[in-house]
């Protein structure tokens, strides 16, 4: 079995984002999705600090730190892009105007709860940013994360042990092993890494999965 690397995961997420979609990519791993949107497909990227129409990274030396994304990295603006203040930006999020958001996560539960802002450790400094707004606001919430923790336990769980970012809000999970839909009747495997058998995936995952060969997307 071959785990998907970060770019393969990003390309797999990008495949599911259609022409014309308004999309917010979270900090870290989800940011990579931008590099894999197929040429010719117009997708409009939103960043919660107040920009629509984010383009590729600027060339070295051309960075302008008044033009950044939510991760505070310099970006560029496409023709047709727009700037707006924070209340409007979060109006777009909470007001259900974004088609997709892609979030990183520590854990996702069978009912679609997500934990991604705080480990709950007593000496940890919490930071939430826009994650809770995105979790309740985007029309579809996609999660991109490694399937297993460093210790080898499943990050897909019956109930999140870390503090929640949002309850019952995740629609689809992309990991380095599989693509899994969160539905009312449980988790459905859509896709698996090359050479991975369902039995093995089920063994590695802490909760029951549904799988039908014909359901493969």
């Amino acid at each position: 079995m071959k785990k998907m690397d970060r770019n393969q995961m990003a390309a797999r997420v990008a495949r599911d984002i259609p022409e014309g979609a308004y999309v917010n990519l979270g900090i870290g791993l989800p940011t990579l999705v931008a590099n894999h949107i197929p040429a010719g497909r117009e997708v409009i990227l939103h960043s919660e600090n107040g920009v629509l129409g984010i383009g590729p990274r600027p060339a070295k030396g051309a960075e302008d730190y008044d033009l950044i994304n939510a991760g505070k990295e310099p970006v560029t603006l496409l023709a047709g892009g727009a700037f707006f203040h924070h209340a409007d930006s979060f109006g777009m999020i909470r007001g259900r105007h974004l088609d997709f958001c892609v979030l990183g996560a520590f854990q996702v539960s069978v009912s679609g709860d997500i934990a991604n802002w705080h480990t709950g450790a007593p000496d940890a400094i919490p930071a939430v940013g826009g994650a809770m707004d995105l979790a309740v606001g985007a029309k579809k919430v996609l999660v991109m994360m490694e399937h297993l923790t460093k210790e080898g336990t499943s990050k897909i769980v019956e109930r999140c042990s870390y503090p929640l970012t949002g309850a019952a809000c995740v629609n689809r999970i992309y990991t380095d092993l599989a693509v899994i839909d969160v539905r009312a009747d449980g988790l459905h495997v859509i896709d698996m890494a090359e050479g991975l058998e369902f039995d093995e995936l089920q063994k590695l995952t802490g909760v029951p999965l549904h799988y039908r060969e014909t359901a493969k997307a």
Binding site: E48, H86, G130, V136
Partner: peptide, 28 residues
């Protein structure tokens, strides 16, 4: 939460007494 922070600031400037937001419901 960032959107709640922005809206709390906006509400102060716009003379709103309080508001209901879905953000953070069911969380710490």
């Amino acid at each position: 939460p960032q959107g709640t922070l922005a809206e709390r600031i906006r509400a102060a400037g716009a003379g709103i007494g309080a508001f209901y937001t879905p953000t953070a419901f069911g969380t710490k």
